[in-house]
Each structure stands twice: as C-alpha cells, then as structure tokens.
Design a protein around this nucleic acid. Structure first.
Length: 724
DNA sequence: CTGCCAGAGCTTTTT
DNA sequence: GCTCTGGCAG
C-alpha cells in the first residue's frame, strides 16, 4: 500500500510528518490537522523501518493515543502498531514504577490512589495529630490536598502557594505543614502513590538508577509528546530523561499550541513549549496555521478572542471553509430560561446535524444542571463528560477495594471502605482491624471474626484473593459472589442499576491479564462508562472537550464570575487562562457556534435572582463578528439590530433592542394541558426530534411512553408531542 | 462506636 | 442544591 504523503498533507504538515530525526517542535493551531500529522508521522516512521515498540507516544488521554494508533494502522493497511508505547505521562510512569517498585522501597506493593483515597489519608492524619478539630474554618480536605498538589506541581513551597492562592489560610501554615508531613508518612506506610508521586518517583528512578535509565532509553528511539503546552516542570524534565544521556540531537517531537494552554492551575507551564528550542539545541520549529475544521466566521471570532494576549508563537488561523452564518450570541432572561433556549436550539440543530455532532460546553460541572433537567423533560439523551467518573461510584469502589487489598495488604483506604460495609463496623473498628492485619495480631482478629460472621466471610474472600493469583475478571466474579448480597442490602432502591455497572466493570476487566495494570488504568484514565449508547448530545466541561470537535457547539453561562470563573478575576495569569479556555471551547465547532449569556442568575446564597454581566471576553468582540439575540417576553428570541452607524455615543451601550419578528428558535409551544381526553394506547404522535411514534402508555400526570422507530421507548412530557 | 439528624457553608478546571 | 460536620440516641 502506498501512502501519498505529499498529496495528503499540506507543506507544513508534510514537513512535520517526514522529519524523522532530531528535535522538532510543532506549533499546531486549533483544528490544523495535528492528529493527522502525528498519524502520518507514525506511519512514516514504521515505513522507514522503526519498530513500533521503540516509539513512545505520550498523549493527554489513552483515548487520544488509541485513536491515533488506530488511524495510523488504517493508513498502513495492517495491524502492528499495538506495540507502540503510549498513554498519559501518569500511566507511562506507573508502568515503569511497577517494574521497579523494589528499588524505590515499596516491598508490600504499591497502589495508585485517587482523590477520595487521598482525603481518607488526610482525615487519618488530622485525627492522629488532632489538627483542626472542631474548627469550622479549617480548610476542607479537598482544599488542603489541592494546595498540596499545587505546590508540588508548580514546585513552590507551601508558604508560597498559600500566599498566592489562599492568603486567608496563612494562619494555618504551620498546621498544614505538619499535616502534610503526616500525610506523606501514612501514604508511604500504606504503600500508596498519589498522582504527583508517579511523576516525581519516575524522575527519581531515572536519575538515581542510571542503569534503569540506560535500559529505558535504549528501548526508545523516537518520542512524541502531544499537548505539550499542558506539561508541567517535572514532565518536561522527564521528556529529557527519556532521551539517551549525552544525545545532543534526540528524536523528540513536541506538539502543542500555546494558545490552548488551559492547565496552569495544575502546574502546566507555557514556558515548557516556549523554551523547548532552548533545551533541545537545533530544534526545528514548524507551524501549522491552516484550519480545516471551522468556518471562517467562527475563526474570525476565535481570533478576536485571542487578540488581547501576547502570543509568543504568533499565528493567525485561516480557513477555506466559507459560510455566511455568523456565530450567535444569545441573551436569555435567566439561567433557567437559558436552559430552555439551549434545548430549543439543540432541537433546531438536530434537524441538520446528528445528535452526536452537537455539544454543550461549560466552565464547571455544576453549570449544566438546568440543561440536564430540560433535556430530560423532552426526552433527549445526553452523555456527560467531566462529571462523576465511572470508577467513582461507591459500588465500583467497593469491589475494587478487594482487588487492591489482594495486591497491597497495607492499603488503609481500601480496608476502611470494604470494612465499612460490615454491619457494626465503622471507621474506628476498621482502623483497628487494619492495624491488627498489619502486625498480624491473630488474637484480635480471631475475636472480631467470632463476634461478626460477616467479617469472617469477608476475610476469607480476601485470603483467597491473596493466595491465588487470578485474572482480573476471575477475581471480580469471585468478589461479586460475596458482594452481591451486600450491594442489595446497601442500596435497596437502585441496586439493579449498580449491578449493571458491575457487569460493565467485569467487561472492562476482560481485556486485562493482571490485576495491577487493571487497577492502574482504572484510576489513571478511567474508561468512559458505556461508550456511544445510541444518539446523544454531549455535555462537557471545556477541559474535557479538549481535542474533540463537533459540527455544532453551544457554550453556556458566558457571564462574569462563571466564565471567567470568579476565582480567576484577581490574577492576570488566571484571567488569561480563562480566555484561552473560551478559545478552546469555540474552536471545537465546525459549522455552528452559539454562545449564551443569561442576563440574570439565581444565587443560592441569597436565594434570589441577581443581574449578571456578559463575560468580558465577549464585550471586546467587534459587533460585526456576532449576531446578537435577546430572549423575548413573547417567546423565542429576537435579533438585536444595531443603530445605524452614526457614531454611537460613548458609554451608552443602549443598542436598540427591537423585538423583531420571532426567530426560528423552535421554542416548544406549551399547550394547555388537557388531561380530559386521555388518548387510547396505539395512537400515533409526532415529536420534533424523534419524528412519528406510537403511544404505548399514558404516564400520569403529564407524560407518555412512546415508541419511536429507530430511537426506542421514550418517556416524554405531553407538551412536546403532537397527537395525531 | 455507629448511624442518623440537622444545620452550616460553599461551590473550578484533572491526572 | 449538595456536602461536610457536629451532636445525640441507641
């Protein structure tokens, strides 16, 4: 099979894909065919005789790397890229640390812990040191861990972080310092690694054990790092350490876009990408500036959003995709009515685009709440990214706790979790049992077992898991025998749903051969629960939308304090990061972009509605780049027309807002609920999205269960269907 | 010690 | 609206 690199790629892409040796920095604007370039380069490397096993591809998510490998395989027309080493920095680090755990002093095994485990350890530390007891002002566990992680990622002292980020916590500095020392101690005692440990320990492994570095680097001939703008200081040093010592011109390619750097909050440092050419002498810098994704009007808007911060690798994206439609800016009355206008807009868009090509983006997870309610009302399916992760669910964690204990007997959070399910055992007893297990105090354990038969069962299960080496799927099946009854007891109201989740966990586990890799992957890059389950709109935080694209994108809550986030208003760097975040959001759109800024917000503290101001990022935008719409009292939205240009008076932003003719916004026209004539089952009806369907059942007070061919059974509020 | 209740306080983004 | 904490009864 012959690949026509010249023809398939533009000159810049071609240069990036076919330069195989030496350091390269690719500055790839949004939608400039970055993935395509990496894919072609992978193919080229393999064609030129590089063994896939010698290629290291570090990406932001496992999904991104598997997509690239998959596409490259398609290009090459054969399998065989399965050996490419890849994944996230954290995942890669874990795979190496696992092999050399002994060198780093983890004899009892080492488990990756997630956030809630961290909080558990912190509680433990607080307890032991008696810090913050009864002090309501004492920062919460999540806050403490956040500060600590920040200090490690930015490589600043706790004092510096407190001064920058949380001045008001200054008085707690000593307490926090002691607390975190204790946290470190307990963590180590339990053989647990937090996310930051993975990176720093790998660095230690590679620097303190030259023969390990030797072995690792000699097995890697080419390194590619995607999303380089979001790497932090350790990660940049790791890239360095993964090249052969003394190699002045290593085969490293970094790909990124400084305009899309959105992870400074966790220590990402734009300097990394700016300084790459300095660290690797003779770096070839290649810029990809042609955008293949979005229409020109969308790009003009995003360029305008970018105007306003200095951009070291200055670039302006251009596109050949013309379109007369401008991005829309809609001003709903409130956040509540925003949700209705959003669903109406989605309904309208769904006539043109498939549902899975539409996304609703927001700054923070909670902001989609109203929209979720509205989508449910009209029976539209959605998938939410960036919300609760699959492996965060209590029942999943329970089962995983057993697997963790089979690998690492000292894992305190796992003990706490699984023992907490035994009736009569709470945190205190759990801790005692953990302690007894650590020093193997048979007498104590025996007494406890005699007292509680349920505990006896559990310990037998754990013993079996520890003595027999099982495949992950076998182990889960085994644990479920014990756990199923516990589950039904613990969640009497929704255990069927949770059992389905456990079934899925078993499915996922089938593709793993050993328990440590299974556990590692699950906590490092949790697979999306049920991939594409039919047609659904995507709801996502902007962060989680990174690297993805849709035909139509809606961004909500573009008002001060929400987007930009209230926390970013004091610090200029934070503020600029919010701007880049909006840039990332808008550049996800191929054809259609709609921005929403509600005029009022419901404030929980005040239990009242307060006025909101349009996001500063949109106030600077020249008005000819956007169509502005306001919600109308009479329903729907009206185009806001500008006064004839005669020098608009300064300060008065009173652009005449004429109601205008009702725009086609498909506002669902609520009909008076007429429950008088209950329709017979079997009647046909119409729905704006699902089309014609058959009424299966009336669900009081105001819904129908309807079967739509191709969509299945839906529960829909009567106002949204027209009976025939 | 555990498990339940009520009241207070607060909300970013993720590996 | 949701989570965390402290107080209290069993």
């Amino acid at each position: 099979m012959h690949i026509d690199y010249q023809n398939d790629l533009n000159p810049a892409q071609y240069e990036a894909a076919t330069t195989l040796d030496g350091p390269i920095l690719v500055i790839a604007g949004a939608g400039s065919g970055k993935t395509r370039t990496i894919v072609y380069r992978l193919a080229r490397l393999v064609e030129s005789g590089v063994s896939p096993a010698e290629i290291l591809l570090l990406t932001f998510t496992r999904k991104a790397s598997s997509e690239m490998l998959h596409r490259a395989e398609g290009l090459l027309g054969h399998q065989g890229l399965g050996n490419v080493r890849g994944g996230t920095f954290h995942g890669f680090a874990y795979s190496l640390l696992k092999q050399h755990a002994g060198l780093l002093g983890f004899e009892r095994g080492a488990t990756v812990m997630d956030r809630s485990d961290g909080e558990e350890i912190l509680s433990q530390a607080k307890d032991r040191l008696k810090i913050g007891k009864g002090d309501r002002k004492f920062p919460k566990r999540a806050t403490v861990l956040g500060l600590y992680s920040k200090s490690r990622n930015k490589e600043l002292t706790l004092e510096q972080v407190l001064r920058q980020e949380a001045y008001h916590l200054g008085p707690y500095e000593d307490d926090l310092t002691r607390l975190l020392e204790e946290y470190e101690r307990i963590k180590r005692e339990c053989g647990l690694l937090d996310y930051d440990d993975l990176l720093f320990l790998l660095e230690r492994l590679l620097t303190e054990h030259p023969h390990v570095r030797e072995a690792v680097t000699s097995s890697i001939s080419h390194i590619m790092v995607d999303e380089y703008q979001d790497t932090n200081l350790v990660q940049a040093r790791l890239v360095r350490l993964l090249t052969k010592p003394g190699d002045t011109s290593p085969n490293v390619m970094a790909v990124g876009d400084d305009a899309q750097s959105i992870y400074a909050f966790r220590g990402a440092n734009v300097r990394n990408i700016l300084d790459f050419p300095k660290i690797f002498q003779g770096t070839r810098v290649i810029k990809l500036e042609q955008n293949y994704r979005s229409t020109q009007p969308i790009l003009e808007l995003t360029n305008a959003i970018l105007d306003g911060f200095r951009d070291k690798f200055a670039k302006r994206l251009f596109s050949e995709r013309t379109d007369s439609r401008l991005p829309e800016h809609v001003l709903p009355f409130s956040d509540r009515s925003q949700a209705r206008l959003v669903t109406a807009k989605v309904t309208e868009l769904s006539r043109t685009y498939p549902l899975d090509q539409i996304a609703i983006l927001f700054r923070a997870g909670y902001q989609s709440y109203h929209v979720e309610v509205e989508l449910n009302k009209i029976g539209l399916g959605f998938r939410k990214y960036g919300g609760i992760k699959f492996s965060d669910a209590a029942h999943i964690k329970d089962v995983l706790a057993c697997l963790r204990l089979s690998q690492n007997t000292s894992d305190l959070p796992a003990w706490q979790r699984i023992l907490g399910n035994v009736p009569g055992i709470g945190p205190k007893s759990a801790q005692k049992i953990h302690h007894a297990a650590m020093i193997n105090d048979q007498a104590f354990i025996k007494a406890q077992r005699a007292k509680r038969p349920a505990l006896d069962d559990l310990l037998r299960v754990l013993d079996t898991l520890r003595t027999q080496v099982m495949r992950p799927s076998t182990a889960i099946t085994f644990v479920l025998e014990y756990y199923q009854p516990v589950l039904r007891e613990k969640f009497p109201d929704d255990y069927p749903r949770r059992e389905a989740g456990l079934e899925e966990l078993t499915q996922i586990s089938l593709s793993y051969d050993d328990i440590p890799s299974f556990l590692g992957d699950l906590s490092l890059d949790s697979p999306d629960a049920e991939e594409d389950r039919g047609q659904a709109v995507t709801l996502s935080t902007v962060h989680s939308a990174k690297g993805l694209e849709w035909d139509a994108v809606l961004v909500i809550d573009l008002v001060e304090d929400r987007f930009p986030s209230r926390h970013a208003m004091n610090d200029n760097d934070d503020f600029e990061e919010e701007r880049r975040l909006l840039y990332v959001a808008c550049t996800r759109a191929r054809d259609s972009l709609t921005l929403f800024s509600p005029e009022t917000l419901y404030s929980r503290e005040l239990a009242a509605t307060t006025p909101a101001r349009v996001s500063p990022f949109l106030q600077d935008i020249p008005s000819h780049l956007l169509s502005r719409y306001r919600e109308q009292f009479t329903g729907g939205v009206g185009l806001q027309t500008l006064p004839t240009p005669r020098r608009a008076p300064e300060g008065t932003s009173s652009q005449s807002s004429r109601p205008g003719p009702g725009e086609d916004f498909a506002t669902p026209a609520p009909r008076p609920a007429s429950s008088t004539q209950t329709p017979v089952q079997g009647t046909y009806c119409r729905h704006k999205i699902f089309g014609r369907g058959k009424v299966v059942q009336r669900v009081e007070p105001n819904k129908y269960k309807i079967n739509f061919p191709g969509f299945g059974l839906k529960l829909i509020i009567e106002d949204f269907v027209e009976l025939e």
